[in-house]
Computed example of a mutant assay.
Amino acid sequence: MAMVRASKNIVSYVRELKPRKYTSRIEVRIVRLWRNYNKESGNTIEMVFVDKEGTRIHASVGEQLIKKFDDKLREGDAIVVQLFKVYDAIGEYRTTPHPYKIGFFQTTFVGKADDFPSAVPEKYFADFSDILGENLDHSCLVDVVGQIVNFGSLENKIIKGKDNMRLLIELRDPNNVKMMCTLWGCYAKQVYDYSRSNMSTMIICVIRFCSVNEWKGAYSISGGYNSTHILLNPTLDFIEEFKASLPNDSLALTNNDSSQWSVGTATSIRARFFVLNERLTIREIIDSTLVGTFVTLGTIETIDTERGWQYLSCKYHNNKNDVISRFKLIAHVKDDSGEANFLLFDANAQQIVRHSAAELYDENEDEDFLPEAVSDLFGKRVLFLDFS
């Protein structure tokens, strides 16, 4: 097949790539690189490229070309790639939603890309609500960022006759939506060791290329594929902004035995309320000197209206042009032993109000006005999961 080199100055964006356009020239960064083996294609080098627009595409180097390109491809490097094939990307657990992928020829050119930006737009972070609400294409891996609020024990599981470490963690997002995540192998140990060593700090976890899993109609995420990449408290541009958008409740990191957890089902909620955590009265929680998670049963007497029952928040990453009302209920709760105020942010409040704050908020009402759906909580007995 005759091929003609593209003009040196003409650079295509990843979104412009089409099959049979062999003369394209792209400038990309290798955001992920790993070795793979399967019976059909043998040993390969697998990569994910990202261009200046933040668009990703998968790329592969076949077994017969590994020696030629091995020393030219390093994860994190910015490179120029020219004279390659573009073909359909098919199958499950694809690293990107791009309809095509890149394959290398013997004549493919790889060189250093000058002036490639150190940061590119982030396009692949998935909202927790979209994952849990089945709003995503589950054939593609996604990126997730969340605060680790709970992690289990490091367990040894036999998978296909081989020992493998497993760790369950619970992440939350700025809307206080919590989601379970299963980590395997070296990723499980990485997160477990870091979490154990940083119990007193807020841990922000970025998981790139994780899968969305469904079990009995409920959804969670999993990391452990060769492509998965986990960053803990990284110095990325958006991390401080993300931390500032989290609920200001000083939620402590907890470490619970995960043998009773059932990822992605209502059992995980039942376990937290009835199996994993100690049941205490309000007075026992107030008097306790222990740091941990406790369950208490109390009656909601009132909701504080002086400090408001809701607040306006950016939907994600401080986009000030897109705000939404979210719950911030300060509930005065009593039991036979005493009384205390419990702060309920959006996701937790929705579980007992049965409405979103956006549905109830009316900007024309007085600030101390309490919607009927909220005032209906008065006198109700509620189980609270308290992080003390």
Rank of each mutant, 00 (worst) to 15 (best):
N175V: 04
S12W: 05
A89D: 04
G146W: 08
M165H: 10
L17G: 06
H138E: 14
N341A: 14
V4H: 14
D130R: 03
V333I: 15
I79T: 09
V333E: 08
I57S: 03
M47Q: 03
I131N: 02
I207P: 06
S197E: 12
V120H: 13
P371A: 10
I230K: 07
S195Y: 00
F384Y: 15
S227C: 13
I10P: 08
E27P: 01
F369M: 01
N36F: 11
L297P: 01
T44N: 07
L183E: 02
S313A: 15
Q147T: 04
V275H: 13
E63W: 05
L343R: 09
P19H: 09
A373P: 04
K160Y: 14
A358N: 11
D51Q: 03
R15M: 15
R272M: 14
N38S: 10
S12N: 13
L290E: 15
L253I: 05
K18V: 15
A252P: 11
S375C: 09
D304P: 06
I79Y: 07
D376Y: 03
N256G: 03
R32G: 03
L385W: 01
L132N: 02
W261P: 01
S258V: 05
G298W: 06
N256V: 01
W184M: 08
N213T: 14
G338W: 02
L344Q: 01
D249V: 14
S220P: 02
V4M: 14
T265M: 12
T305R: 03
Q190E: 14
I330Y: 07
E134A: 15
W184Q: 04
Q351E: 11
K123F: 08
R74K: 15
N248T: 13
S222Y: 00
L171W: 06
A2L: 15
Q350C: 10
A89V: 06
Y311K: 09
T305Y: 00
I285T: 11
N256E: 07
Y37N: 02
R196Q: 07
M3S: 13
